[in-house]
């Protein structure tokens, strides 16, 4: 077993109809009903991994793997007349990310914290086609359990560097006793192709703790850097 696997519950959507409660496992010892402390429509439906008829700590399992199947990088250089173009791409395939920023952003469990816009799409009697559970004003909220709801595919392909250069024609510079002038512009972190919903799929380990690899707890994203330059050779 690789180190730092994600450990939590598997889920099966939300409870959206009364029939789903028939023979459903009891979740965290809670009865059925609308008040906090009971399981109701709009709550997360957890999977009874050990088939004992109740959802509790024993139903947690491995829900994700932060390690990629492989990582890669390649550089392409193009040259046409006086132009040169270099493209460096790198990426990672097959790794999962535990998106705790998303967990906090859609929590709907307190009145004193800002939420993502999509948190407004919470479950209600008029809004049943959603994956965001009903709001419960309590941090002791079973819908917040670490689960596969927060695990995302972290594969990405990033254009890490793109440089476009132009060499001035030697005829126009030779009288200045300069042998070569190249003007170029480059962009770091130009674009990332990914299905990951957070800021940046390149996470690393939270607090440099290898047990918390690819745990996105609000990591500051990689900046995009533009630079312009001139190479002059005498």
């Amino acid at each position: 077993m690789p180190i730092g696997m994600f450990w939590g519950f598997k889920t099966d959507g939300l409870f959206t109809s009364d029939e789903q409660f028939v023979d459903a496992p009891v979740q965290f010892g809670q009865g059925f009903g609308p008040v906090p402390g009971q399981t109701y429509l709009g709550d997360v439906k957890y999977v009874d991994i050990n088939d004992d008829g109740e959802i509790n700590d024993l139903d947690r399992t491995f829900i994700g793997n932060p390690h990629p199947d492989f990582t890669f990088g390649f550089t392409n250089n193009f040259r046409y007349k006086n132009f040169d173009l270099s493209v460096f791409c790198q990426g990672s395939v097959g790794n999962d990310i535990l998106n705790l920023t998303y967990r906090n952003g859609i929590a709907n469990n307190t009145l004193w914290q800002n939420m993502f816009v999509e948190a407004a799409n919470f479950y209600s009697a008029d809004n049943t086609n959603t994956n965001i559970p009903r709001p419960i004003n309590s941090l002791s909220n079973p819908n917040q359990e670490i689960s596969d709801r927060y695990v995302e595919d972290g594969s990405y392909l990033r254009i890490q560097n793109l440089t476009l250069g132009y060499n001035l024609p030697s005829a126009s510079i030779s009288k200045l006793k300069i042998s070569r002038v190249r003007i170029y512009g480059s962009v770091q972190n130009l674009y990332t192709f990914t299905k990951y919903s957070g800021y940046d799929p390149e996470i690393g380990s939270f607090n440099q703790n290898v047990l918390l690899s690819n745990v996105d707890n609000g990591r500051y994203p990689t900046p995009r850097t533009y630079s312009l330059g001139v190479n002059i050779e005498f």
């Binding site: 965290f28 008040v35 009971q38 004003n137 941090l139 079973p142």
Partner: peptide
């Protein structure tokens, strides 16, 4: 209390993931 960090026992809804617990 209605404060979400300390209100779980008002309605006996505390879970093992409660931060104060």
């Amino acid at each position: 209390s209605y404060s979400p960090d300390v209100n779980a026992m008002r309605n006996f809804s505390i879970t093992g993931s409660d931060g104060e617990l």
